[in-house]
């Protein structure tokens, strides 16, 4: 990187100021407020509040349901991340080798990206609806009675499938551009050395894609943890009931629907810590194995 020397000492700070200000206003202040609120039990209308120490944390961590939600969040994130990446990679590799009508193929594979998450959720809910959903009808053909909102596993499956469907195009775009940035010379050399395209993929293409893959992995985990909120909310149809949900959704439910600001804040602080740990882990452990060109 090029070193830039500034003439005056305050100029770099002036350039940084807007960004720092935004981060402080929209991240540090709310985060600090969440930490403060997590030690209080507060009247929703702002009438009174009691300092309760770490009671909110104790209540959250000893709650069986919280543990259940955490477990679901783990499996949900794992499955959504894995399948969105795997399917997108497969599609990208296949689309990369298409010679005729390549553009049309690519556009067809990408356009789901343009759908807003709540709309994607709605389309998904209609597809899976227990009374009129076509996917439910297909399942019925195989003798399986699929009931979203009733059966825990069916609902979980619907949430996962809709979330993956929504995320595949993003990954596809990145993988495709990643593939196209692999130098032709390397590919041709590999083609001469090895005839098996399967082996070529794993020994040459895949490692060359690693930087893109690593970037996407982080993006996808974040997506599965946080951005799937809209999908889950739409599938839930305003009645959490015994449906599966992610930790972020529970923060929202307890804080907004249940007006329990203290408990909800404690949960979001826990989540903040988890994300922090995850980020450190990702960069420390995984980045070592990724080779940037």
């Amino acid at each position: 990187m090029k070193r830039v020397i500034f003439g005056s000492s305050w100029l770099p700070y002036a350039f940084l100021a807007p960004q720092i200000l935004i981060v402080i206003i929209f991240f540090y202040l709310p985060a600090a407020e969440a930490v403060r609120a997590s030690f209080y039990l507060e009247n929703p209308f702002g009438g009174g509040s009691t300092f309760v120490g770490i009671d909110n944390y104790k209540d959250v961590l000893t709650d069986d349901n919280y543990v259940r939600v955490a477990k679901f969040t783990f499996w949900f994130s794992l499955l959504v991340t894995f399948f969105s990446l795997a399917i997108a990679l497969l599609l990208a590799v296949k689309a990369d080798t298409v010679l005729r009508g390549a553009k049309s193929y690519r556009i067809l594979l990408m356009w789901v990206y343009a759908i807003a998450p709540p709309v994607a959720g709605l389309i998904g809910v209609l597809m899976f609806d227990q009374h009129v959903g076509p996917i439910t009808d297909v399942a019925a053909l195989f003798g399986y009675k699929m009931q979203i909102g009733v059966n825990y596993n069916d609902t979980a499956a619907a949430m996962i499938i809709i979330s993956i469907w929504k995320q595949v195009p993003v990954n596809f775009i990145f993988f495709l551009s990643g593939l196209q940035s692999i130098p032709k010379a390397v590919r041709e050399a590999a083609q001469i050395d090895c005839r098996s395209s399967w082996r070529r993929f794993w020994t040459v293409t895949f490692p060359m894609l690693a930087p893109t893959g690593f970037f996407l992995l982080i993006i996808n985990i974040t997506y599965a943890l946080f951005d799937t909120f809209a999908v889950i909310d739409v599938v839930m149809k305003n009645e959490p009931g015994s449906n599966p949900m992610t930790l972020v959704y529970k923060v929202y439910l307890d804080g907004f629907r249940g007006s329990d600001l203290g408990g909800s804040s404690a949960q979001s602080v826990i989540l903040m810590a988890l994300v922090l740990l995850l980020t450190i882990f990702q960069f420390r452990m995984i980045e070592r194995r990724v080779h940037y060109t």
């Binding site: 349901n65 059966n151 825990y152 009931g241 015994s242 629907r257």
Partner: peptide, 21 residues
């Protein structure tokens, strides 16, 4: 108080009863 949440707890557990969980 917090009855909205209490109802959600009921709904959750009733759902789990009826699906055999």
């Amino acid at each position: 108080g917090f009855y909205v949440q209490i109802r959600d707890v009921m709904n959750r557990e009733y759902g789990r009863i009826l699906t055999g969980e």
